[in-house]
Nucleic acid binder design. Structure first.
Length: 424
RNA sequence: GGAGAGGUACCCAAGUGGCUGAAGGGUCUGGCUUCGAAUACCAGUAGGUCGGUAGUACCGGCGCGGGGGUUCAAAUCCCCCUCUCUCCGCCA
C-alpha cells in the first residue's frame, strides 16, 4: 500500500512512479479526491464531537444543581444524530479509499529499467557453464520416469494435471534438497527456521498483496474462509503483522520450507510436462525484515544466499533484474535467479528475490522502533526463494544425467542421500 | 460439535453508565542507602493513531479484542463476530 501522506505531498511524483509500470487509470486521482473529502468531513465531525464531550462533562454538575436538562438533552440528541450521520460518511469514504489504495501496485525503484515484459529483463551475471553432453540429453520427466522415481501418470489419476508423485529415491531426493537448503540457510547464513501453517486467513493474504487483486490465482477453502498459501512469504511475513519490533532485533532473517499451492489459471498449456509448473510444489523461502536504510544491501545478500545453493550444487545459473513490466505487484525491485535447464535450452526461473520496501509493511502493519525517542516506522520486507525445490530436482536430474539414464548425485547432497553417489 | 471462563496500556491487573488518559502493582529512569550490590524507601515517566499543520511543541478526535445497537453520555447495558483457555465429545 502506498503512503497516503506521500500521495498528498508529492502527488505528481508518486503518480509518475506508478506509471513507470502501468499506464492508464489505476485510481490514484480518486485517492486524492477521497483524501481531501475525508479531511473535510473529519474536521466537521470532530468539532461536533468536541462540543458533545464538553457538554457531557457539564451534565453531572447541572444535575447536581437540580437544573432542568430536557431542552439540553433534546439539543444534544440532534447533535448526536448529526455526528452519527457524518461518522457514516467518513467510514464509507475510508472504505473506498482503502479499497482503491489496496489495488495500486508498488512504485518501482528508479534503478529498475522500464520494460514490457521478461524480454526487457537485464542479465546481471552468470555462473558456471552449461554442460556439453556427449549424447542426446533427456528431459527430467523422461529421466524421472525411466528411473521410476517420478510418476506423473498416477498423479493424474489421484489428483489431475500439474501434480506429481515422487517415489523411492525421487521422494528422498526431494527431501534431501529441502534439508540441504534449510541447513545452509540456518547453519551458515544466519536464518531462523519457521514451520508455518499452510492455510491462512484473508488478512494475511491482504498483508502481502495477494488480495484483493489476485484472489482467482489462489486455492480457497470455503469451509473456514482460508486460502492455501501460494508461497511461504505469506505466513512468514505476516508472522510479524501488527507488531512494533524493537529496533535492535533488526534485521530479522527467517527461512521456511512449505508446499505452495497455485491455480496457474493464466498458464494453461504452458510447461505442461514435468515438474516446472505444478498446482502443488515445495519451496524453501527466505524472508527478511530490515530498516529502510539497509534494505537494498540486504537484497543483494539475500540474492547471494539463493545463488549459493546452486553454486554448492554445481548447477549453472544467471541472475537478471526484472523490468517494470515483469515486476510483481508488491515489489519495488526483483532479481530472478534462473537455472540452466537443458530440456528448455535456456535459463528458467528458480528464485525470485524482491525488496518490497514498506509496501507490505504498510498493509500488514509491521513497524519497528529505533529507540525510546523515535516514533514507530514501517520496516522494509524482502523475500526470495531459496529455492524452488521441484525445479531444483528437475535441474539436478537434467544437468547430472548420464548416457545410461542414471543420475549422479551432487556431492553436497550425498550426506542427505545416505551416502549414495548415483541414482540408477 | 456441546458447555463454561476470559480478552483493559510493555507485562500483570482494578474498574460502580458521567469528574476514567483509565486505580493498583511490575517494568523503566533518577535519588537515597551501601565499600559495592541486592532489598527497602522517595520521586518521576508511561502506548498508538487520525486531523488542525511542516514539527518529538500546542489543540482536538479516536482507542479498553472487532463490529453494530441503546443512551444526552458506554470499558461499563444489549446483539453479532473473533481469538485464547478449561471441561465433555470426536479425532492423527
Amino acid at each position: 500500500m502506498l503512503d497516503i501522506k506521500k500521495i498528498r505531498e508529492d502527488f505528481d511524483g508518486v503518480k509518475a512512479g506508478v506509471e513507470r509500470r502501468c499506464k492508464g487509470d489505476f485510481g490514484i486521482d480518486r485517492v486524492k479526491e477521497l483524501d481531501a473529502k475525508r479531511r473535510e468531513v473529519l474536521a466537521e465531525v470532530e468539532a461536533l464531537k468536541n462540543k458533545q464531550n464538553v457538554t457531557s462533562r457539564e451534565v453531572p454538575k447541572l444535575k447536581k444543581a437540580g437544573e432542568d436538562t430536557t431542552a439540553l438533552f433534546a439539543e444534544m440528541k440532534q447533535l448526536s444524530a448529526r455526528i452519527k450521520e457524518l461518522d457514516g460518511e467518513v467510514s464509507s469514504i475510508e472504505e473506498e479509499l482503502r479499497t482503491v489504495l489496496l489495488g495500486i501496485p508498488n512504485v518501482p525503484n528508479p534503478q529498475v529499467q522500464i520494460g514490457e515484459d521478461d524480454n526487457d529483463n537485464v542479465e546481471l551475471r552468470k555462473w558456471g557453464t552449461p554442460r556439453e553432453f556427449g549424447f542426446e540429453a533427456k528431459a527430467h520427466w523422461d529421466i524421472g520416469e525411466g528411473l521410476d522415481i517420478l510418476d506423473f501418470e498416477r498423479a493424474g489419476k489421484i489428483s489431475g494435471a500439474r501434480f506429481t508423485v515422487y517415489k523411492g529415491l525421487g521422494a528422498k531426493l526431494e527431501r534431501a534438497v529441502i534439508n540441504f537448503m534449510l541447513d545452509l540457510h540456518t547453519e551458515e547464513q544466519g536464518y531462523t527456521e519457521i514451520l508455518p501453517p499452510f492455510m491462512v486467513n484473508r488478512d494475511a493474504m491482504t498483508g502481502t498483496g495477494q488480495l484483493p487483486k489476485f484472489e482467482d490465482d489462489m486455492f480457497y477453502v470455503p469451509a473456514k474462509d482460508f486460502f492455501l498459501i501460494p508461497t511461504a512469504e505469506v505466513p512468514v511475513t505476516n508472522l510479524r503483522a501488527k507488531e512494533i519490533i524493537p529496533g535492535d532485533e533488526l534485521p530479522i532473517y527467517y527461512t521456511a520450507y512449505t508446499p505452495c499451492f497455485r491455480k496457474e489459471a493464466g498458464s494453461a498449456g504452458r510447461d505442461t510436462r514435468g515438474l516446472i509448473r505444478q498446482h502443488q510444489f515445495n519451496k524453501v523461502e527466505m524472508v527478511k525484515f530490515t530498516t529502510p536504510e539497509t534494505s537494498y544491501e540486504e537484497l543483494e545478500k539475500l540474492t547471494n544466499d539463493a545463488e549459493e545453493v546452486l553454486k554448492r550444487l554445481g548447477i549453472p545459473y544467471r541472475v537478471v533484474r526484472l523490468s517494470t513490466g515483469d515486476l510483481g505487484f508488491s515489489s519495488a525491485m526483483t532479481y530472478d535467479v534462473e537455472v540452466w535447464m537443458p530440456s528448455y535450452g535456456r535459463y528458467v526461473e528458480i528464485s525470485s528475490c524482491s525488496d518490497f520496501e514498506d509496501f507490505q509493511a504498510r498493509r500488514a502493519n509491521i513497524r519497528f522502533k529505533r529507540d525510546k525517542d523515535h516514533k514507530p516506522e514501517f520496516v522494509h520486507t524482502l523475500n526470495g526463494s531459496g529455492l524452488a525445490v521441484g525445479r531444483t530436482v528437475a535441474a539436478i536430474l537434467e544437468n547430472y544425467q548420464q548416457e545410461d539414464g542414471s543420475v549422479v548425485i551432487p556431492e553436497a547432497l550425498r550426506p542427505y542421500m545416505g551416502g549414495r553417489e548415483v541414482i540408477k
